[in-house]
Design a protein around this nucleic acid. Structure first.
Lengths: 249, 249
DNA sequence: CGAATCCTTGAGTAATTTCAAGACTGGTGG
DNA sequence: CCACCAGTCTTGAAATTACTCAAGGATTCG
């Protein structure tokens, strides 16, 4: 077929982006979105396993995930990998690098992933002229700060079942925020990666998933997860430690 | 003694503040600091156990810790408290509330603590006029984001000894950043609170402290901590899991 | 000085980790 | 299109570790 489409035609712009309300353009006027759009670079999708950037690499841009998913990881002194988070469409990546000159962590695509690259120097300049954009950047950073904090809550839960319940609800919420089903979704990462994130070994992950399925809280088919009993999962995740509520499932 | 000093005289200003380089004034011109100073409110110290703000309370200001220390906590559904962080002089608190209208967490003074209160609406307006100030706010948020992330690293460490080693090194670094001793310092929080933060029960905290002291890595006198063998602590915190290096202590 | 809180210590239990090995996938190449 | 291969996932049994429960002792703050 004849390809007469220019690059810009096949690539979306901020104004028409479904994720606009989650991203930098939120609250911006049509004109301001146009200005932002002019500095946003939309490259071809990043292949599964490829780096968006690596730890130690010079920081130049932040990235907004458009489709796909990304894991953020750091290499520990002993050679182990620690996964500090997973990024889904609408998330903005690289904000932790602003304060230093270099990226503190590595961003790896978990599947074919398309991102918008926003050169930070240009964003900063544009923000000087467009207060609304600047405010939105700050709001997004505040949002990320909040998200990171709740990760802390997650990891101090002792029981593996609790940690899994909490993280599943968090993903559920994130999918729902994008208008997807809160009860049926596909986890983009391997159990290995999810376990690493939660501080649990793969064996425990496997057993914990199975236990929740046996209790009738989940239905699992590979990476496809269905939350069968939301109430019970919430009770397990956020309810009392004694299990009084959860035991009623 | 005769008190003729006005309130403004007994209270410092941003320009003369020792913590200036860690805080919002960093990188600002003398004039800009003056403008910032004019919106900063310096109240009398907050007593030990008093709230700077409570979760759910309307967000109006961010706070910079000048002296003392603060713990950030949230109440879980089961009634338990979760401590998400500790704030020392130079830290800016409340940034996680910008995105929502209310504070997501409660800030409690761990000792008599003095803070600078910065009304956020005014800071935002001022930031619109002073790009350098705006950039500095973003840098501080990026710094906080980075700090929160490394909390995640901390909490995925399985062993209690590792978690304690990591958190002690983090405090050591923070004290050093303020020009204090990196090897001898006073932890402002109780073992209870520190354990809560680390996801460990008080009994485990007690035993773990004692074990590190017996191994000759620490010297402990109440809240006063001395790091005796930095290398061994670092090996324990960041070295390999097998303990090959740490065992040589 | 006195009460409240915090810290310590001990013994037993429950949980995850470790070690080992087999089964399953999904992607690649013939 | 099928077969292969590497990585992923599962399962079992033993070992380690932190948690729970209980109670006494030490600090600290008012």
């Amino acid at each position: 077929m004849t390809r007469i489409a220019t690059l810009s035609e096949t690539r979306s712009n901020c104004h028409d982006c479904r994720l606009r309300s989650l991203c930098l353009p939120d609250n911006l006027s049509k004109e301001d979105i146009g200005e932002l759009d002019s500095i946003v670079q939309r490259r071809k999708p990043v292949a599964r396993g490829a780096y968006l950037f690596q730890a130690g690499q010079r920081f130049n841009s932040i990235f907004a995930v458009r489709t796909g998913s990304v894991k953020a990881s750091t290499l520990l002194a002993n050679g182990d990998e620690h996964i500090s988070g997973f990024h889904l469409p609408g998330d903005v990546i690289g904000l932790d690098a602003i304060v230093s000159r270099d990226h503190p962590s590595t961003a790896i695509a978990l599947e074919s992933t398309s991102v918008c690259e926003i050169p930070y120097a240009e964003l900063e300049s544009l923000g000087d002229r467009l207060p609304t954009l600047q405010h939105q950047l700050v709001r997004i950073m505040s949002r990320e700060l909040l998200a990171e904090q709740s990760t802390g809550h997650l990891l101090t839960r002792r029981a593996a079942e609790q940690r899994l319940a909490v993280v599943l609800l968090k993903f559920s919420e994130r999918f729902a925020n994008r208008g997807l089903s809160a009860l049926r979704f596909r986890l983009p990462m391997s159990r290995l990666d999810l376990g690493n994130y939660l501080g649990l070994v793969p064996e425990t992950m496997s057993r914990t998933f199975r236990r929740l399925e046996e209790q009738g809280l989940l239905s699992i088919a590979g990476k496809e997860i269905e939350i069968v009993d939301v109430c019970a999962i919430k009770a397990l995740a956020y309810g009392n430690n004694e299990g009084d509520l959860a035991a009623k499932a």
